[in-house]
Nucleic acid binder design. Structure first.
Lengths: 112, 112
DNA sequence: TTGACGTATTCCTATAAAGGAATATATTCT
DNA sequence: AGAATATATTCCTTTATAGGAATACGTCAA
């Protein structure tokens, strides 16, 4: 079986570095495709394709303005990712506290 | 150019659903490969390969115990993801407040 | 040492996809 | 209408998988 389709979910969509760059760029303010092309140093067709992927999973919104298409990041769509990573938060806190405990125990042992 | 290598970074590693399942499963407690195989309903070689990918990017740790290899999630490695998504937090809050404002404005207009 | 068990690796196949080139589509201007 | 501009889509090629089958490797038990 091959790799799963990128367009299927948010996790796959953000796996591509250029797409993450696009999201970071477009979260501040909406932009026409041309500006994204300049910014990414990538061909216009490639950028358009990345934008379609992002759009399919709801990570960007688009609206037409004359000949331009203005894209912007839909930050809301990133939330599920945030929530998913957050479920691990208590565990890395555990790990940190265990490391801390060990360090403290070691220091105490050293003192005596 | 083809798709970038999965093994290269955490974002690609978690793009695969089965690997996310593995992370969720192994964060509670370490497990031998056999149990992961049962849980995922996937062939043992496939599971081993996913584990190697996760291991390469530091998302899981492994230790040998007799004939078993015990894997556990390294929650710390998920933090960068959490941080990345967090940079968008203020923007989705913006969007929410704008939606709220509009809703309130609409309600106010309706009342008058 | 031999066999059994648990896991990793190799080989193979089918498929998704990233980027470039060329082309199509949409919109504005003259 | 016709040309110019901005973007989207199609076609093509190269490459990285994901999973299954077969096999190799490592460890324990008798």
């Amino acid at each position: 079986m091959p790799r799963a389709a990128t367009t299927s979910d948010v996790f796959n969509a953000i796996a591509e570095p250029k797409r993450r760059e696009i999201l970071e760029y477009l979260v501040v303010q909406e932009r026409p495709v041309g500006e994204i092309v300049e910014r990414l140093r990538l061909g216009q067709p490639s950028v358009s394709k990345h934008l379609q992927v992002l759009r399919n999973v709801g990570l960007v919104r688009a609206r037409r303005s004359g000949r331009h298409m203005l894209y912007r990041t839909n930050a809301e769509a990133i939330r599920p990712l945030h929530e998913w990573t957050k479920t691990f938060e208590r565990y890395w806190q555990h790990q940190l506290s265990r490391i801390k405990e060990r360090a403290e125990a070691k220091a105490a042992a050293g003192k005596v």
